[in-house]
Design a protein around this nucleic acid. Structure first.
Length: 117
RNA sequence: CUACAAACCCGAACUAUCGUCUCGAAUUUAUUCGGGAAGGAAAGUCCGGACAGCAUAGAGCAACCUACCGGCGAAUAACCGGCUUCAAGUUUUCUUGAAAGAGAAAGUGCCGCAGAAAAUAACUGCCAUGCAAAUGGUAAAGAUGAAAAUGUGAGGUAAGAGCUCACAGCUGUUAAUGGUAACAGUAACAGCGGGUAAACCUUGGGUGCUGUAAUGCCACGUAUAGAGCCGUUUUGAGAGCUGCUCGUUCAAGGCUCAGGGUAGGCAGCAACAGGUAAACAGUAAUGUUUAUCGCAGAUAAAUGAUAGUUUAGAAACAGAAUCCGGCUUAUGAGGUUUGUAGUUUU
């Protein structure tokens, strides 16, 4: 976790920020994902739970491109989605934004591998 | 009928597709099938317990909690019923609400402003003496205040005064009566110089400390290395008795610094002061019996998305983290009851 936040890079499509890090560690799955909301912005546990559920659901419905990319390039990635707005979202906006974010994420990963090589 | 306020009830159901956590079974060991998956407050953490660890010779002091009576219960100051006092109302009764309900006759302190005076009272006044100034007596009348020395009448007196008497009010003691009791009304006797204990205090009763990140077990790992100080059969370091003192018990290792390592798993942990329904007992809290049900268990932390149907409506407050009882606070629509206001009809 600490490594992800200190070393990892980030891309964002408002209202969601994705922090990610490629890793060499042995993982059971090619992609590991977490979601989070700041308790500073949302005091009630109910609201935080709600946002985390919506983020999970939106990721679940749109994860296929990322998985395809990662499998094709034989990478292992850790991603953490952080919600950065201060008002409750509805599911539709997240449904629209998450694919954009994942596109951006794939592009970044691609550039990284290019520079490394 | 409408609006508002308060109290209580309730806190959607079903189907399809995809998905999360968990339990059980099966096997091809990562899949399939089946079951279950937040609340009335899960919240605040204000009380009380269960459970766990440590302690459990004693004495004194301190600290804290508590304070009408009975019942219920594992337990509580907090629940139920009653008593007393106070407040409001439609005021003998009654209804509703509140109580921080032991003691002000142990002591100390305090009582703003006003007022002469806020507690061993004397400004104006009244009476006596005196030419007067003043001295003494007095507490009827006046003014202030939230509160002014129990109220009314009569006697009494220089003037007055519970000084005396009658009636009334209040306090205490005793007696019998009613009540389990708090207490009630009655009688007799003694008395009547305020309030504040949510100021200190006094009295009665009580209290070991810490909380599931408790605690027990397993695995893995390091430096079997270093520095300083104190001490080992009496000149004993230090530790326990969890605030302090005395006292007492144990005691051969202990403390500090710098550095190194680990941060995984299992149990605790989901079957009980359990839920639901009915009957019975009780004013009630609650209890008993019978039937029936099995109802979350995560560890970065699980309940979601979409579409449709039902319905008058689906929108409030809000997310379990050891468990249970009570209290407090938040809460949409709809329903029930009560109150207030308005309108219509008779």
């Amino acid at each position: 976790m600490d490594q992800l936040f200190t070393v990892g890079k980030s891309v964002s499509v408002f209202p969601v920020k994705a922090m990610f890090n490629e890793t060499d560690a042995v993982l059971d799955f090619p992609v590991k994902v977490g979601v989070g909301v700041s308790s500073r912005n949302f005091k009630k546990a109910v609201d935080r739970n709600r946002i985390k559920r919506l983020l999970r659901e939106a990721y679940r419905l749109n994860k296929q491109p990322l998985l395809d990319f990662v499998n094709a390039n034989n990478k292992k990635v850790i991603v953490f989605f952080l919600f950065i707005d201060k008002t409750l979202p509805d599911f539709e906006t997240l449904q629209n934004k998450i694919p954009l974010l994942i596109d951006k994420l794939i592009k970044q990963l691609n550039e990284n591998s290019a520079t490394n090589n």
